[in-house]
Design a binder for these strands. Structure first.
Length: 290
DNA sequence: TCCCAGGTAGATC
DNA sequence: GATCTACATGGG
C-alpha cells in the first residue's frame, strides 16, 4: 500500500481485499452518503472524507496523507491481512467459499464507540435506511458541523459531552420512538468512567459484553455488534434475523435457537467469528433470503 | 389496512 | 429458563 499526494487529493495505491461499496453498504455502519458509483462521503468522529475507488486505487478528498495514515487507514482496517483471514476461514469451513468470494472486499470497520452503541440501539425493529436517517438527524441537531461535499452538509455524531445534554424528549423528537429512554440511559452511562472504550477494549470479551448488557435496550445482538464494530472483538458473532436465516439454511435445516447458533459459530469460526458473520450477513441480504 | 423491520424488556408460564 | 407480546415509526 502506497499513500501520496496528487494535487488536492490523497492517492492510495495497492489496496487489496477492499471494496468501498461492500464495506460501507454491508450494514455495519450508518454514517455515509453515496455520491456516485464507488464514490462516497464518510464520517468518522470529527473527520469527513470523500473516497472514490477504481480497482485497487483509492482517490481521497478532504484529507491529507498524515490524516489518512493516522485516521482512515485504521478506520478502514487497511493494515490487516484479509487474504490470510479468508484462507483460514475457508479451510475451517469450505462452505464459506461462495459467501467470501462474492464479498471479498468487505472489511470490518473500526468505528467510534459512542456512535456505534447508539446506532445499534436505534437499529432494533428498524430497517437500515431508517437507522441512517435517525443517525443523520441526531448528528445535524447535536453534533459538530464538518463541511460540505457536493452541496451536502455533514455533521459529526455528538460526542460524549454533547450526548450528556440530550434529554429523553430530545431523542423522541428525532423519531426514535420507544428507544428514546434506552438512548438516554446509554448517554448517561457513556459519561461514566465505567464505560470508557479503552477499558472495555481491554477487559476481555465476556466482561465487556456483561457490562454493555446492563444498558437498557442493549441485549445479546446489539452488544455483539458494538463489541465487533467498535471495541475490536473480532470473535463476536451477532445473531440477527438474517444470520439466523442463513445459518439455519446452511447448517441446521430447521428452526434453531439463537443460543445454539452462537455456540455453533464459536466452535466453528472461533476468533474469526466476526469476519464469518459479516460475509454471511451481506451474502444473505444480497440474496434476499427469506 | 396489514405486515414487517440488523431486538429487547417485562410479563407469564 | 423458555416463550409471548408491546413497543414508535415508516415503507411496501
Amino acid at each position: 500500500m502506497r499513500i501520496f499526494n496528487e494535487g488536492d487529493c490523497v492517492i492510495v495505491e495497492d489496496v487489496s481485499e477492499f471494496d468501498i461499496r461492500q464495506t460501507l453498504e454491508c450494514g455495519q455502519c450508518f454514517h455515509f452518503e453515496k455520491l456516485d458509483e464507488m464514490d462516497y462521503a464518510v464520517v468518522y468522529k470529527k473527520h469527513l472524507l470523500r473516497i472514490k475507488q477504481n480497482g485497487n486505487v483509492l482517490k481521497c478528498e478532504n484529507t491529507s496523507v498524515e490524516e489518512f495514515e493516522n485516521v482512515w487507514k485504521y478506520y478502514f482496517d487497511l493494515d490487516r491481512d484479509y487474504k490470510c483471514i479468508q484462507e483460514d476461514l475457508i479451510s475451517a469451513d469450505e462452505r464459506l467459499l461462495e459467501a467470501i468470494k462474492e464479498n471479498r472486499g468487505v472489511r470490518i470497520l473500526n468505528q467510534d464507540f459512542a456512535e456505534t452503541l447508539m446506532s445499534f440501539i436505534i437499529s432494533q425493529n428498524k430497517q437500515i435506511p431508517h437507522i441512517k436517517a435517525i443517525v443523520k438527524s441526531l448528528s445535524e441537531k447535536y453534533g459538530d458541523y464538518l463541511g460540505s461535499i457536493n452541496g451536502m452538509d455533514f455533521y459529526a455524531f455528538p460526542d460524549e459531552l454533547q450526548i450528556k445534554k440530550i434529554s429523553e424528549e430530545m431523542y423522541r423528537e428525532c423519531k426514535t420512538g420507544f428507544r428514546a429512554p434506552y438512548l438516554f440511559d446509554a448517554g448517561v452511562k457513556l459519561n461514566s468512567e465505567d464505560f470508557n472504550s479503552e477499558g472495555l477494549r481491554n477487559m476481555g470479551y465476556d466482561l465487556a459484553k456483561e457490562k454493555l448488557i446492563t444498558i437498557k435496550g442493549v441485549g445479546e445482538k446489539v452488544a455483539n455488534c458494538v463489541l465487533l464494530f467498535a471495541l475490536g472483538y473480532r470473535n463476536a458473532f451477532p445473531v440477527d434475523v438474517w444470520i439466523k436465516r442463513i445459518m439455519e439454511h446452511m447448517y441446521f435445516e430447521k428452526e434453531t435457537d439463537n443460543n445454539e447458533i452462537m455456540r455453533f459459530a464459536k466452535e466453528r469460526f472461533g476468533d474469526y467469528g466476526g469476519y464469518a458473520q459479516q460475509y454471511l450477513f451481506y451474502y444473505a441480504r444480497e440474496k434476499k433470503m427469506k
